[in-house]
Simulated assay, not measured.
Amino acid sequence: MSNHPTPAPLLDYVTSCALPTPWAQFTLHAFVEHATGKEHLVMALGDIGNGEPVLARVHSECLTGDVLFSQRCDCGAQLEGALKRIAAEGRGALLYLRQEGRGIGLINKMRAYRLQEAGVDTVEANLQLGFHADARNYELCLPMLEQFGIRQVKLMTNNPRKIDALTRLGIEVTERVPLLVNRNAFNNSYLDTKQAKLGHMMGTPVAAVAEDGQL
């Protein structure tokens, strides 16, 4: 018999409901995080617990992009694109984590926007505000995926940190599915910075961008 106490759960599964969307009728599952009281969600479609790799997206909340249609980022377009791909496949899961602004919160994200308007890039703005370049934590993904018996995913992401995080948690990423959407005049520098400073796999060379001082 082990003398080590069982670790406290990070969150609780609460309830579920049907969620019709323009692309498919998903099942929306709700979780509550113990440490913060934040509500996190999983949008599921089809039989995701049959042991086969699941087309999945780990999406961090972005009120400005997801809800207010901001063109400063690609978040809203990635959310829509991921749901469309899951609907087309007929099976998949989208984890919606309440980690606004790469984990710094909505108000601080707006402060970072002001700094960006003064000429700094997204990474430097976070650092000037006293935060990490990316303060998100993906530990919640494990109990959320375990709730449905998911151990293997085909992950829709451009971010290698998400792949590494899930792998460290014991989730096998069998495939990376690129999600390159909505590059525009307002977010070119933002996307180039994600590639140059955070290692995102954007498929666009940015060597000349740093020389122009646009990061």
Rank of each mutant, 00 (worst) to 15 (best):
M1H: 11
S2T: 14
H4V: 14
P5K: 12
P5R: 10
T6E: 10
P7H: 07
P9K: 01
L11I: 02
Y13F: 12
A18S: 13
A18D: 14
P20H: 12
A24P: 05
H29C: 03
H29F: 03
A30L: 14
E33N: 08
H34I: 00
H34G: 00
E39T: 13
V42N: 00
A44H: 04
G46A: 07
I48V: 14
G49Q: 04
G49I: 05
V54S: 07
V54I: 09
A56E: 10
H59R: 04
S60L: 01
T64A: 12
T64K: 02
G65C: 09
V67M: 14
Q71N: 03
Q71D: 00
Q71H: 12
D74A: 02
A77V: 01
A77W: 09
L79P: 00
L79Q: 05
E80F: 00
G81L: 06
G81H: 15
L95R: 02
L95A: 04
Y96W: 09
R98N: 12
Q99S: 09
E100M: 03
G103Y: 01
G105C: 04
L106K: 09
I107Q: 10
N108E: 13
N108H: 15
K109M: 03
M110C: 07
G119C: 06
G119N: 07
V120R: 03
V120Q: 06
V120L: 02
D121K: 01
V123F: 05
A125L: 06
A125C: 06
L127D: 01
Q128T: 01
L129A: 03
R136W: 09
Y138V: 05
Y138E: 01
E139S: 14
C141T: 15
E146C: 02
F148P: 08
G149R: 08
R151Y: 07
Q152L: 04
Q152W: 05
N159T: 15
I163T: 11
I163E: 12
D164T: 15
D164I: 11
D164L: 15
L166V: 13
T167G: 11
T167S: 15
R168E: 15
I171E: 03
E172A: 11
V173N: 03
T174R: 12
E175L: 01
E175A: 14
V177K: 08
V177H: 04
P178N: 07
V181Q: 07
V181C: 03
N184Y: 12
N188S: 10
D192A: 15
D192S: 09
K194A: 10
A196M: 03
A196K: 12
M202Q: 13
M202A: 06
G203A: 08
G203Y: 11
P205R: 08
P205E: 10
P205D: 14
V206P: 08
A208D: 13
E211K: 13
Q214D: 10
Q214P: 00
L215N: 09
